[in-house]
Amino acid sequence: MVEALIKRNLKTHPQLNFPDYKSSRLRAPKNKKISFSSTSTEISGPVFKKDIIGKLDNDLTLNFSKNNILPIGHKIIVFGTISDQFANPIEGALIEIWQANAAGKYLHHNDNNTAPVDPNFAGCGRYITSSKGYYEFITIQPGPYPYPNRGIEWRPMHIHFSVFGKSFGQRLITQMYFEGDPLINSCPMVNSISDKKAKQSLISTLDTSRYNTKKLLSYKFDIILRGTNQTFFENRKEGL
């Protein structure tokens, strides 16, 4: 049986040309992308082995700490599942995250924000999903931060996510937001997505059922990667 990726529904994705987000003006291509059915190139992809993941890779409160000093800020758990569009959990998916520290500062030479660097916080983590597609990070609540756009604007609190599924065509780079953050609604990057439900799907929810287990606030963020379907060639279904 031949499995191909189901077509991407661009209506649930951001607009590339979104002038409210100033940086997109000189970078977003003007021409329409060319659509085609999957080939062997897009349905294959790199698979990362669990042995690349170190013990502290998914604990951002410890993976850069010096002399066991914890980073400043309140510690949170970010967790969820990765599944495909047919709700099949994806095992072995690689998640890489990056974020600002509690003061809204990135450990990056291009970050001009005057907020302080936290010497015990790098802001990067990675994880490979378990058999049920589950992942978990322990981190610090990232702060909102100012950036130049239409004058100075403020990004809502967020964590950047990069995900590899089973195939390169499933590759996803996105951002997770936090339930209740008043800055979400005015963010041009969020608003580059016109579909309300799609926008909502990027907002993690506070999971109160975990209050008592680890004494940490827990946010749930489930990710859905593209699904695969049987595909047709020359009007005949392969493999039936």
């Binding site: 991407r8 569009q85 030479h109 970050d111 983590g125 996803l172 990027l202």
Partner: peptide
């Protein structure tokens, strides 16, 4: 049922932190 794929968002200017930390 076909669920909606999680939407993309920009990787932003600081993507190296997560994807290529040793390079910076």
């Amino acid at each position: 049922t076909v669920l909606d794929e999680t939407p993309f968002q920009t990787a932003g200017p600081f993507l190296h932190i997560g994807c290529l930390p040793n390079a910076i």
